[in-house]
């Protein structure tokens, strides 16, 4: 499978940072990206931290594709691609992005208790966007949950984002879907396929 665009845009491999809130399906998405890297012939490392952070806290995983990957951790300013499953978390990780790197944001807010208890304010979309500008102009917002809800499967907002990613990276849809199929129960496949395609089209449209 020739992934010309990918090899041209990322000749040294790809560093992904996935961020979200516990329970948002970031783990499945990072597993899929790790499998995809292997399917595309890369060496792969995928790192995530379990434990206390899962209780409503920020969840971050790193996936690295390359000829030979050493460190599981991505250094500051070395993330080629950040996928934020929650808007506020996009900002929390933005300093990790490579100048001009690709930022894919799920247009969805999970209000932390520090906001609901009145200590902080949740930043407005405009403020989020303005904060991102100095880091990258390569910013895409996807209504992951809305799209997933439209097809009647709100759980698949993570797969909507993966669909969007496939368009942005020019990765063969069939290769991607095959990897997803191997990670989910068969009875949910057609819904996930639909979510993926709606996500992929959301970028073109």
């Amino acid at each position: 499978m020739d992934q010309k665009k990918l090899k041209k845009d990322y000749p040294d491999g790809v560093n992904f940072l996935l961020t979200g809130v516990g329970g948002q399906g970031t783990i499945l998405a990072s597993n899929v990206l790790a499998d995809l890297g292997l399917a595309l012939g890369y060496d792969v490392k995928k790192a995530e931290i379990h434990g206390m952070s899962q209780r409503g806290g920020t969840v971050i995983s790193y996936i690295r594709w390359g000829e030979q990957v050493f460190s599981p951790i991505i250094s500051k300013g070395d993330a080629d691609i950040i996928i934020a499953f929650e808007k506020l978390e996009a900002l929390r990780s933005i300093e990790q992005i490579k100048p001009g790197g690709l930022l894919l944001i799920n247009d969805y807010a999970i209000v932390p208790v520090t906001v609901s208890s009145g200590i902080f304010e949740y930043p407005e979309d405009e403020k989020i966007h303005k904060t991102i500008i100095p880091f990258t102009s390569n910013e895409f917002w996807v209504k992951g949950l809305d799209i997933a809800e439209e097809i009647g499967y709100p759980k698949a907002s993570n797969v909507v984002l993966l669909g969007a990613l496939s368009t942005l990276l020019g990765i063969d849809e069939q290769v991607f879907l095959k990897v997803i199929a191997a990670r989910i129960p068969q009875k949910y496949y057609s819904l996930n396929e639909l979510a993926f395609q709606r996500g992929a089209n959301s970028i073109i449209g």
């Binding site: 809130v21 900002l91 520090t114 906001v115």
Partner: peptide, 20 residues
């Protein structure tokens, strides 16, 4: 000499782990 590292100057609401 790294390009002047951009850092964000927006106080972000913390998201500490909490009782579910």
């Amino acid at each position: 000499v790294k390009k002047e590292g951009t850092s964000i100057n927006l106080p972000l609401p913390a998201r500490p782990p909490t009782l579910c």
